[in-house]
Design a protein around this nucleic acid. Sequence first.
DNA 1: ACAAAAGTGTTACCCGTACACCCATGC
DNA 2: GCATGGGTGTACGGGTAACACTTTTGT
Lengths: 276, 276
Amino acid sequence: MTGASERPGEEAFLAAYDPSAFPPFALTVDLNIFTIRHGVLCALLIERAGHPFKGFWALPGGHVEHGTENADTAATRELNEETGLDWSTVGGHLEQVKTYSDPGRDPRMQAGLHVASVAYFALAPDLPDPQAGSDAAKARYWPVEDLELDIQRAAWLDGHPYAGEAPTLGYDHAVILSDALERVRAKLEYTTLALQFVSEPFSLADLRRVYGAVWGRVPDLPNFRRKMLGTEDLLRPARKSDRAASETGGRPPLLFERGSAQWLSPPLMRGEPDED
Amino acid sequence: MTGASERPGEEAFLAAYDPSAFPPFALTVDLNIFTIRHGVLCALLIERAGHPFKGFWALPGGHVEHGTENADTAATRELNEETGLDWSTVGGHLEQVKTYSDPGRDPRMQAGLHVASVAYFALAPDLPDPQAGSDAAKARYWPVEDLELDIQRAAWLDGHPYAGEAPTLGYDHAVILSDALERVRAKLEYTTLALQFVSEPFSLADLRRVYGAVWGRVPDLPNFRRKMLGTEDLLRPARKSDRAASETGGRPPLLFERGSAQWLSPPLMRGEPDED
DNA sequence: ACAAAAGTGTTACCCGTACACCCATGC
DNA sequence: GCATGGGTGTACGGGTAACACTTTTGT
C-alpha cells in the first residue's frame, strides 16, 4: 500500500477529498473460459436470469468488489464460483485480455451507471458440467464454432440485433469472446499454453489434437514431435503403464507431464485453417 | 447503442435502477508515450503539480469522462493534450496494454475512491518538447535507461519507497511503464511497429537504429536489409535527392516511406541485449 | 587517397515441409 | 494377419546468422 505520510501535505488532501465529485463507474470482469470437449473448442456461457439482457446468453463474470480486490482477484473468485472448482488447485491459466468501456455497452448507462469490464481468458482440460449460479438460469459449454461469432460481432458493432440460429449473446460479449479467442489462437504459436488444455498424463497426440481443435488445423506430426521434444523442459516423461489396453486399439502412446517451459522459439506456425 | 425496447421488461428494470447502490469507482487512462531522441528510447513523464503524489514524476493521463467516452477516446484526447499534436493527423500508433486495479494503487482509496486505470502505449518519431499541462509542473522525455525501472518496480511491489538517483515515479507507474516497455519490445519482433518511430522519408539505417535503441542491440545489417526489403509492401521507395550533402559524409542512403504491411513473418529475433 | 557510411555476396546451418517407413497392440 | 493409432527417418528447400567484401560520397 502507499503510505501517504511519506508525502508532505497528502494526508490533508485526502481528508478533504470528496469522491462523490465523480459520477459513478462500475468495474466488472468477464470470463472467457475455454476447454476442449470431444475434440472441439468450447466456451462457457450462462443464460442470464436477470436484467439487463435477461434470457440472453453471456460470458460469466461479475463486479469487482469495491476497495477490497483487484480485477485479477475478482476474476479468480468468479472463476471458482462458475466452474465449481478451486482454480489455484487446478493450476489453470488465467490472463487479462483487454478492457471494454464504451458507454453504450451496458444498458445501465441509461440509469447513469457507466460500466467498464476487464476481460480475461482461462484455459482448462475438460471440466465437469457447470452449475447455474445466482444470476444464471442455465450454464453450459458451447462449441465456439456454433456461435457465429463473426456475424454476432458485426451485428453488435453495426448496432443491429442478431437474429441467427446461434444462442444470442448479450452486451458486447460477441466482441469480447472473439477477441479472446484470437488471443488464445495467437498465443498457442509462441507459448506453451496448449499444455493447459490437456490433463496429465497426456500423449503427444493428445497435445497435437489441442492445436487441431483451436486452430482448425493439425500440425504435421513428425515436425510437431521434434519441436515439442526438442524444447528444453517442455515435457517430462510419465509412467507409460496407465493407458495400456484402452481406446480403440493401436500402439499405446508415451505419456508426459507438463514441464516448466513457457515459450516456443521459434514459434509454431498455424498457417490458414484447413478447408472444411 | 443498445435498444432496451427490444428486450421485454428491461425498460422497467432500468427506470427503477439505482446506480448509487454501487460504491464509486473512477476510471482513468495512463499513457506510455515513447519516442527516440538522439538514438535513445525515451518516455514522456510529467511532474505532478497536485495531490496525490505531488512532486513525483508520473505518466500523463486523466479521467475517462463519464457517459460520453470510452478509454480509447480518453487516451486519444489526453495524448493530444499532452503532446500538443493532433494524433490522428500524425498517424501515430496508440494501443491498449492492460488495466491496473489494485485498491492500494491510488491513495484516494483512503477517501473511498477505487481508481482503475487502463494503460496505453503510443509511439512517435522525435516530437517537440511537451508543454506542462494543468496537472503538471514540468513535462519532459526521459531516457528509459535512466529510470531504473526494475528497481522502482520491485520497490513498489515490495511496498518500500524508492530512494535512488532516478526521478521517482508516483503510483504504480514504474510497473505500468515497464510492462508497456516489454510489450513494445516484444511487438517489434513480429509487427512493423518500428516504422512508427521514424519520420518519412527514412533510410534502412534509420530504421535499424530504432531496433538498436529499443532492444539495446542492432540486428545484423545485411540480414535486416533482406528481411525488410523482402517483406511485401513494407517499404516504398521515396525520392532519394533530399538528404544528399548532409550528415558527416559517406554514401547517401536510399530513402523510403512506410508501406501497408503490418506483420513480420517469421519474426525478427532480438536475442539477448549486447553487453554494455 | 582515405575514412565513413551504405549496400552486396557467400557460406553454413537450422528448421519446416513432405512423405515414406517402422512399431505395438486388439481383433 | 491386418487394421489402427503411435512413433521414426530422410531428403529437399527456404531463411537466417555470420562475416567478408564492394560502392559511393565528403574532405
